[in-house]
Simulated assay, not measured.
Amino acid sequence: MSETVSFGYEEVSPAEKTARVGGVFASVASRYDLMNDAMSAGMHRLWKDRFVRRVKPRAGEQILDMAGGTGDIAFRLQRAGASVTVADINPAMLEVGIERAQQRGIDDLVWTEANAETLTFPDRFFDGYTIAFGIRNVTDIPKALREAHRVLRRGGRFFCLEFSTTQWPGFREVYDAYSHHLVPRIGAALAHDRDSYRYLIESIRRFPDVPAFEAMIRDAGFVQTKVEPLLGGLVAIHSGWKI
Rank of each mutant, 00 (worst) to 15 (best):
G23R: 13
A82C: 11
F7H: 09
V52W: 02
F25P: 02
A82Q: 06
S203P: 10
P211G: 11
A15W: 11
S203G: 10
L94F: 09
A74C: 06
V183P: 00
P14I: 10
F159K: 08
L200I: 13
A41F: 13
V24F: 05
W111P: 12
L119C: 12
R150T: 02
Q78K: 14
A144S: 04
G221Q: 01
S179I: 06
L64M: 07
K17T: 09
P122A: 14
F171R: 01
R154Y: 08
A116W: 03
E95S: 14
Q62Y: 10
T120Y: 03
G8V: 05
I237S: 01
V5H: 04
D107L: 12
S6E: 09
R194T: 08
S83K: 15
V138T: 08
R157P: 02
L46H: 07
G155H: 01
E95F: 04
L109R: 04
G240I: 04
V28I: 15
H149G: 05
V21F: 08
A15I: 14
G8M: 08
F207Y: 06
D65W: 03
N90L: 01
K56W: 04
F171N: 02
T118N: 13
E162H: 00
L152Y: 00
V223K: 07
E113T: 14
H181W: 09
D33A: 00
I73G: 01
F171S: 09
T18L: 14
G156N: 04
R154A: 08
K143D: 00
H192Q: 10
T120W: 03
T18R: 15
S83G: 10
A26G: 13
G81E: 09
A189Y: 03
G170H: 09
H192S: 12
G97N: 05
V28Q: 00
P169Q: 09
A74T: 06
A15C: 10
Y32F: 14
V24E: 03
R45T: 11
G155N: 02
T112I: 15
